[in-house]
Simulated assay, not measured.
Amino acid sequence: MTLRAVLLASGAVLAAAPALADVNVYTTRQPELIQPVVDAFTEATGIAVNLAFVNEGLVERLVAEGARSPADLVMTVDIANLQQIVDAGVTQPVDSEVLEAAIPAELRDLEGHWFALTKRARVVYASLDRVADGEVTTYEDLADPKWKGRICSRSGLHNYNLALLSAMIAHHGEDYARQWAAGLRDNLARKPQGGDRDQVQAIWQGECDISLGNTYYLGQMLADPEQQAWAQSVRLIFPTFEDGGTHVNVSGIAMTAAAPNRDEALQFMEFLVSPEAQAIYAEKNHEYPVVEGTKLSDLVASWGELNPDRLSLSEVAGHRAAAVRIMEEVNFDG
């Protein structure tokens, strides 16, 4: 059975690529977000990359395929997803001086099973008209009753919010995090719903004054004529933990245990942390590079300085089960 037949049989949707490729990637990210760096890699090396978009059931697919999997690499977003793939036993450690030198220790698995490629900050979107400068400074402050009826949020059980709560546990412990989650719940203007951009629309409509969201959504909204007015009604605020920095999550990559084209796959992984690839990510996707010194896009730079929290994302992922339990205990989603 050809690679294309295997991928089609598994339900993956192929991006435009040759039927047989030197590097085969399963990705939960839309292929068009990755294609610019793929094209640059192929131009530089002559190695083709075959992208298969796997929207759901990625771990289950890799487990089912086992040693027969055609996938060399997995690209996904959020530390929880990366850790879930590792915990399923379908990855292998990668020993690379290039990756270790380029990526800070807190943004990669110390045993080499996953590596961050880009950063996205979990920040506050604030109404230009109804929120004063300096009114929000910390994540802890969001549980203050002064915000009652003024906050919009997506589900507390979404990975992005669970990661933030996991970081809160890491900083302050479960008891404090439970009180914080309950306080944030009490300050909601409406039942959690929609995605991060829907919260910004609600601010524009006057339903709430602030919301939590990932930074890159501002770039996406500004590029969409139907959503530009939402984006122009808010500004980004970079809150920090009282004893840390701004919470960041990542997109990342892992090599599968099967990896039929390991050498070529490693070349692609190392290319993704090159100055060229990091600059493409920064410009096209409105994300923060993981490699220090990479120039930000003009738009991202205009948002202000990011002081990222230095917690290890592996530690954050270790608190996910407790974060889920707390969100359910406080009935965050109502």
Rank of each mutant, 00 (worst) to 15 (best):
T2Y: 09
S10I: 03
A12N: 14
A15G: 10
A15N: 04
A16P: 03
A19Y: 10
V23A: 07
V25N: 11
R29H: 11
R29C: 08
L33H: 01
L33C: 02
D39Y: 06
A44F: 04
T45N: 13
A48M: 06
A52F: 08
F53Y: 15
V54M: 13
G57D: 14
V63E: 11
V63I: 14
G66V: 12
G66W: 09
S69K: 09
S69E: 14
L73V: 00
V77E: 09
I79F: 03
N81K: 08
Q83W: 05
V90G: 04
Q92I: 06
S96V: 07
E97V: 10
F115S: 05
L117T: 12
R120M: 13
V123P: 05
V131P: 14
A132R: 15
G134Y: 12
E135M: 09
Y139K: 11
Y139V: 06
P145G: 06
K148F: 04
G149W: 03
I151N: 01
S155P: 02
L157E: 03
N161P: 09
A163N: 02
L164I: 10
D175L: 05
A182R: 02
G183Q: 03
Q193C: 02
G194C: 01
D198W: 01
D198K: 01
Q199N: 15
I210F: 09
S211F: 07
A223V: 02
Q228D: 04
A231N: 05
L236M: 15
F241S: 07
G244H: 09
V248S: 04
N249D: 15
S251K: 00
M255G: 01
M255P: 05
T256H: 07
P260C: 05
D263T: 05
L266W: 06
L272S: 04
A277G: 01
Y281H: 09
H286R: 02
H286W: 03
P289E: 01
E292N: 03
W303N: 00
N307A: 07
P308D: 14
D309I: 08
V316R: 08
V316K: 08
H319E: 12
M327L: 14
V330M: 11
D333K: 08
